[in-house]
Nucleic acid binder design. Sequence first.
DNA 1: CGTGCTGTTGCTAG
DNA 2: ACTAGCAACAGCAC
Length: 274
Amino acid sequence: MPELPEVETVRRGLESLVMGAVIARVDVRDARLRRPIDPAALKKDVLGRTIVAVERRAKYLIVRLSGERSILMHLGMSGRMRVLNAADPVEPHTHVVFGLEDGREIRFRDPRRFGMVEAVLDRALETHPLLTHLGPEPLAHTFTGETIHARSRRSKKPLKNFIMDQSVVVGVGNIYAAEALYIARLSPFRAAGRLARAEADRLVDAIKTTLREAVRLGGTTLNDFANVDGDGGYFQISLLVYDRAGEPCNACGAPIRRRVLGGRSSFYCRNCQR
DNA sequence: CGTGCTGTTGCTAG
DNA sequence: ACTAGCAACAGCAC
């Protein structure tokens, strides 16, 4: 499910619902995620603590707790967070449940089990191996055309793979890479190193515009993304190329193409994107 | 029934 | 130092 807009949507939902709540119970129903959960460590670090903030870095959620500890979470491909009452039926593939003192529960569900849940000391966050190599946040003003132009100089990587590289810029996955490249009128197959400076500016603008609009609409729901209330997003209505193979390009009418690039489907207009 | 997709990402092999 | 491919997994469309 999640690229930056979906994770940000979940972050906002959690922030609005569970700030100030106290974690009274932790139930690890299935520890076998890609990074196995250590239930004893998780309990020791979070029980009795208050949720003081919910942050996002790249596609990671950071639930800040009292006592300088955090829960670092990733939704993988199929992860969902819900806030429900303890009496509500537990859906299949619910792997971790945080019981709150007020009778509600934060539930982490992830059928494909690519996600992660891990307690971390705040002072260990900055040096956490999963976070250290991450590039700039795309919506930060420090992320500019200059950033990617400089970074791309000798790269032969296709542009699409380049902007999906989390050390170049974070949060851009398969859907938003396709959309941003279409808006910037750049071919996904172009070598990143052959990007002109003005094109880099265009690309960065397109990435920012696409992500901002997707956040505003609560993310993209294609198969199963849902926010903490269980509702889908609306950005799928605005998709210009993703999953639209064969349909006419909005700008020129030529059919949208689909080609596999690095094992992932790429959607683009052969006319408009050069 | 199988087959081939699916929103991620760290690691390994080349 | 690059990149491509794979591995973790369940579900769904065809």
